[in-house]
Amino acid sequence: MKKYVLLVEDDPDLGSLLSQYLRVKGFTVTLAVNGEAALIQLSTQSFDIVILDVMLPGSDGFVLAGRLRQQYASIPFLFLTARRQQEDVLRGLSLGADDYLVKPFDADELVLRISNILRRCAGQITQPDIFRIGSYRFEPAQLQLTRKGQRQQLTQKEADLLEILCQSAGRLVQRKTILETVWGSADFFNGRSLDVFVRRLRKHLDQDPNIRVEVIRSSGFILRIETNV
Score class of each variant (00 low, 15 high):
172 L>K: 00
43 S>M: 05
176 K>Q: 13
228 N>R: 13
154 L>G: 08
158 E>I: 11
110 L>K: 05
24 V>Y: 07
35 G>N: 04
25 K>F: 00
9 E>D: 08
36 E>Q: 11
145 L>R: 07
170 G>D: 08
149 G>M: 05
45 Q>A: 15
109 E>K: 01
196 V>C: 05
152 Q>Y: 08
83 R>C: 11
150 Q>R: 10
151 R>S: 15
158 E>Y: 04
126 T>Y: 00
22 L>D: 06
32 A>R: 00
160 D>K: 06
27 F>N: 03
175 R>T: 12
40 I>P: 00
178 I>D: 04
160 D>H: 07
32 A>D: 01
104 P>I: 05
147 R>N: 13
73 A>I: 02
167 Q>K: 06
143 L>H: 14
185 S>F: 13
201 L>K: 04
146 T>C: 12
2 K>N: 11
99 D>F: 01
140 P>G: 07
69 R>Q: 12
94 S>E: 14
172 L>E: 03
184 G>A: 10
136 Y>P: 08
223 L>A: 04
4 Y>F: 12
51 I>E: 00
188 F>G: 10
183 W>Q: 06
162 L>N: 02
25 K>C: 09
226 E>P: 08
223 L>C: 07
142 Q>T: 08
76 P>A: 04
19 S>A: 12
9 E>W: 05
106 D>P: 00
191 G>K: 09
57 P>Q: 09
156 Q>I: 15
52 L>G: 02
10 D>T: 01
106 D>R: 01
214 E>L: 14
180 E>P: 02
98 D>G: 08
146 T>V: 14
209 P>C: 04
107 A>H: 03
159 A>G: 12
207 Q>P: 03
155 T>M: 10
168 S>R: 13
56 L>N: 01
18 L>T: 02
197 F>A: 06
196 V>P: 00
69 R>P: 01
117 I>F: 03
133 I>K: 03
84 R>L: 02
79 F>R: 04
222 I>D: 06
14 L>P: 04
98 D>A: 11
96 G>H: 02
83 R>D: 08
27 F>L: 06
87 E>N: 15
19 S>H: 03
1 M>W: 04
37 A>G: 10
56 L>R: 00
100 Y>T: 09
119 R>W: 01
8 V>L: 09
157 K>I: 15
187 D>F: 12
185 S>M: 11
58 G>E: 05
7 L>T: 06
88 D>C: 09
106 D>I: 00
89 V>H: 01
154 L>T: 09
117 I>S: 05
53 D>F: 03
77 F>T: 01
220 G>W: 01
202 R>F: 01
